[in-house]
Design a protein around this nucleic acid. Structure first.
Lengths: 359, 359
DNA sequence: TGCGCTTTCGTGTACGCACACACAAATATA
DNA sequence: TATATTTGTGTGTGCGTACACGAAAGCGCA
């Protein structure tokens, strides 16, 4: 392997001069620079990343900002674990990853956590832009400091985020339509959503759009219906509403839940009604997986949240260490989970159970 | 971050002594060793992998041995690309990956390529054990040199391979049964296989077993039938056989091809017959993907070949650098591909188009 | 008891390679 | 001539690795 020393010897200059050319640090005459560049190219030289990482000693800090995971909403654990695994993998590239989290129902906690994050002086930021107004503030602070940032999972427009890593929600919804239709040629199908998602979470509305479009574009007679609830909890009120709707509309063949809370719907519906319905929902949370395994849910579409976390860290690492420009829209696979394949799909997800590193 | 120097100072010994304890290199009195170990544990010390990699300078060499990919059999390109990407990612851990390939129809080339491989003095080997007899010879050479080896994609018993990385073929076949049945409640379904696969490739027979078991275990009336051909090419003879079989058995609703050659079957069947059949096959090769996109194939099950290559290199890296014992059976996800999600599933596969590094 | 020998135990340090700063030399400007 | 500016050099630093070597301790034997 050719080293800087070799290049320097060949160009009859010192190692330091070669280093300056490699890093465009200036202070080298054009003539010398051209000579060195020629030699670099001829040897197809690239810096030894190991020695480079050692010399730089954690020059780069990636900060992540995402919702806290807890018993009520375990979804965010997977991206966190993905980040943790990636952090371990890129340690040898001189990258330090700091994790910050916030209460996903509380804009204030979002902004406060960000302020703590800023104090860690990150080189780049991976964030879940959960609240539009606060995101604007955050982004303007980041931009004033020239810190690149990447959006994870939630894709909102009008920002200069260097990339988005997540799922194509529209197509995911479209696929949900195709899957639920394949077994039940007749329909109709019911979409159950929470009202507060309508404005807040545009992933949910894109999924619904894709779902409906499947039936429209393929000229399928079966209609879709929508039931909007105030919130998706398993309160008596919710149960009541769902069950009475199903009694009033006994022709319904399947239910589509465009959020990660299909397990709550399952919990609400009476067993004998459930048996005659095909359910399809999103996200491989433990509760949802349990529903797959006990046959109450036929399909889950996974956003591959672990991979979202893992990939976003890797993308930023490649950007920082090799100046690779990330794909501005990095859509992860739309993973179709059924009872039989679900066990193999979470191979990575629980490798890193250590809960350290949270701020 | 705490360093060996710090530990040495605290224990009032030299750095070299600490290093000897860390690597169990002997030559340290019990008393001194105990003292150092206590301090190491108290500080939860772990060596800086970057400095370690630099000092060792490619101490580890991983060699891979897999079939050559070519126009006729493009399948093996993906594992190769996965290996290439992993090789790039683990460069910073002081791992060098050397790739070797062989003609998958020629046992002699398999063994010859292995002999070249051996000359590269690998620390560990990733191999596709394509021929049983030669594999025995290879393995005994590896074991005599204490070189650990890992099987990729093909799982054969009776060896001391430290791990297998690939797919659970039985379950994949079972899932194929479920999927083809979900749209066509009646059946029957035809399995088309090449005769030479029966003995050679036990992945194919496991897939068939799983496929049949789906119908048996769920007490489904629809029967499966098998058509055995001498080889799966698009010769006139093959076309003839397939089409005449389908004419003789017009009740057939779908075809299951348990190998990666479903695109050939598609090519053999007449268009108007094809329209009324549902096809399901294996592997996301470009030809097969084209069949998904033009609606001639309904489902493909992917073995995630890219990930097989990538993961196997990573597993060995973790073993070599961190002594992490790999899972002896690492089953990758059983990926269900349909027309709509296939475009997102090959995100990684063609990142690394550089064809260098082949031996 | 003393001499020389072998083990055992421990030390010191060069090396791997890139990085970046302090400094020097050469050249240009006032 | 004195002062900036450009261009180039030399070297300490990051941290672990492993070898050469030195010191000490143990042993046998006269």
């Amino acid at each position: 392997m050719i080293t800087i020393k070799d290049i320097a010897k060949e160009a009859q200059v010192s190692e330091g001069t070669v280093d300056r050319v490699i890093h465009n640090r200036g202070g080298v005459s054009k003539k010398t620079e051209a000579k060195i560049r020629t030699i670099l190219e001829r040897h197809n030289f690239s810096v030894n990343p190991i020695a480079s990482a050692l010399a730089m000693k954690n020059k780069y800090v990636i900060a992540t900002l995402m919702p806290t995971h807890n018993a009520d909403d375990i979804f965010w654990k997977s991206p966190y674990l993905g980040v943790l695994k990636a952090a371990n993998d890129v340690k040898t590239s001189g990258i330090l990853v700091n994790h910050f989290s916030f209460n996903q129902c509380d804009p204030h906690s979002y902004f406060e956590s960000f302020k703590t994050l800023l104090k860690s002086k990150p080189t780049a930021v991976i964030m879940v832009p959960n609240f539009s107004k606060e995101t604007k503030q955050i982004v303007s602070l980041l931009e004033s400091k020239n810190i690149p940032y990447l959006f994870l999972n939630i894709d909102i427009d009008g920002f200069n985020n260097m990339a988005f890593v997540g799922q194509d929600s529209y197509t995911a919804g479209y696929i949900a339509g195709k899957l639920i239709h394949s077994k039940n040629q007749t329909g109709p199908f019911l979409i159950i959503q929470a009202r507060h998602n309508i404005t807040k979470n545009n992933a949910v509305s894109n999924r619904i759009k894709g779902f409906n479009d499947y039936f429209l574009k393929n000229n399928i007679a079966s209609k879709t219906q929508t039931l909007k609830l105030d919130s998706l909890d398993n309160s008596l009120e919710t149960k009541e509403k769902i069950n009475s709707y199903l009694i009033d509309n006994p022709e319904i063949k399947g239910i589509f839940v465009p959020s990660s809370r299909i397990y709550i719907i399952v919990d609400c519906i009476e067993a004998k009604t459930l048996k005659n319905l095909e359910l399809i929902g999103f996200d491989n949370t433990p509760q949802n997986i349990a529903c797959l395994l006990n046959d109450s849910v036929a399909f889950l579409i996974s956003q591959k949240p672990f991979d979202q976390g893992y990939e976003s860290v890797r993308m930023l690492t490649d950007y920082l260490t090799q100046n690779k420009i990330p794909n501005p829209k990095t859509f992860l696979p739309i993973d179709i989970l059924i009872k039989e394949n679900v066990k193999y799909n979470e191979r990575n997800a629980f490798v890193f159970e250590k809960e350290d590193g949270i701020n």
